[in-house]
Design a protein around this nucleic acid. Structure first.
Lengths: 201, 201
DNA sequence: GTCTATATGCTGATAGAC
DNA sequence: GTCTATCAGCATATAGAC
């Protein structure tokens, strides 16, 4: 976010191609290290080493540690959004599919879980990111729920907003339990919830 | 936990009464400070100042910062367990009541949320605490769900373990959303979920 | 039991050479 | 663009005086 204008400059000139590539490389390395060690235990130095740079060298590309992590988050979100079907009708299945995939990337699940709780402080660098993210997700899932109601798959007596909020909450909470108990089948539980709700007359 | 034998000695002799009282005072102060600043931003020094001790003075009572926080957690859990009805049949309403109460103690909600994600690393001081806690909660809530099924309030076609897991997950996830969006009525949403599940034929 | 003083180690960030 | 060197700050933990 603080890097927005930097990104814009990047796209424009070929001379910066290497810089762009290096930035991408750093972000990839950051994802890898975080995935292994978790967010709390990852320092700028750790990421720098993983990418073969000194700490100062890495900070040439990102203004601060927070800017780097915000960018990691933003990129990760992009990837997830690509996974989410454009068709509202398919988004519950899409959410379940994402949960299935998340079981393969524990470090990222942890990054989200830790950052989203930390970010509750309004001054936190990622606070706006997360409030906006949840607002968008609730709205999109709300549409999906309404679509299901219109198709007659879900009772119209259920409040769509409430169901969307609960689906999101369940997804997050299942991840918390799964991190402690990796045997838990998150996707299956979420699917079970949706199936149960669809049976409400 | 590292303080287990210390506690045992404490109970035995009147001479240690002051020490016990001070320990309690420290734990109370810790809860207050954490409730205000969140877990991450709370140092041993902060708690020491709140209780009128130096940092070294406080660490006379607790072997380490981790031991202190583990004890804070353990105590908090005790309080919550007292809130939870002994009668399995009333425990869903009990969970909803706890959610209602949690809206008044944001710092503690955050302590739990942050620690429970951090603790997913098996080496973490609170790892065993949380895995065990979730196991117990799932089992107890599972009993409750089965009790509801036996009373005919909930369809027996639903898997009790799965419903218990989802209820817990929803509670946790609602807290995540509420920390970012304090307007969210966690208790109402959870109640809505339970009501919906009870309508499944 | 409580203090001051300090050891030690991390962190993120910056200055300036090349 | 990348480095080395270094800074200031904060943390936990400990030694030892009182």
């Amino acid at each position: 976010m603080a890097q927005g204008s930097y990104d814009a400059d990047m796209g424009r000139r070929g001379a910066y191609a290497k810089g762009v590539a290096k930035r991408e490389e750093i972000l990839d390395a950051a994802l890898t290290v975080i995935a292994r060690n978790g967010y709390q235990r990852t320092s700028v130095r750790d990421i720098a080493e993983a990418v073969g740079l000194s700490q100062a060298g890495l900070l040439h590309y990102f203004a601060s540690k927070e800017a780097l992590f915000a960018e990691v988050l933003r990129r990760r979100d992009e990837v997830d959004r690509e996974r989410m079907p454009a068709d509202p009708a398919a988004r519950v299945e899409g959410l379940i599919e994402i949960m299935r995939h998340n079981a393969d990337v524990p470090g990222l699940v942890q990054l989200y879980a830790e950052l989203s709780t930390e970010a509750s402080h309004p001054e936190h660098a990622a606070h706006d990111f997360f409030t906006q993210r949840y607002a968008v997700l609730r709205r999109e899932l709300g549409e999906t729920v309404r679509a299901a109601q219109e198709r007659g798959e879900l009772s119209t007596s259920l409040d769509a907003e409430s169901v969307a909020t609960i689906l999101l909450a369940s997804a997050d909470g299942l991840q918390t339990q799964w991190m402690l108990e990796p045997g838990l089948d998150m996707a299956a539980r979420l699917e079970h919830l949706w199936a149960a709700l669809c049976r409400v007359p």
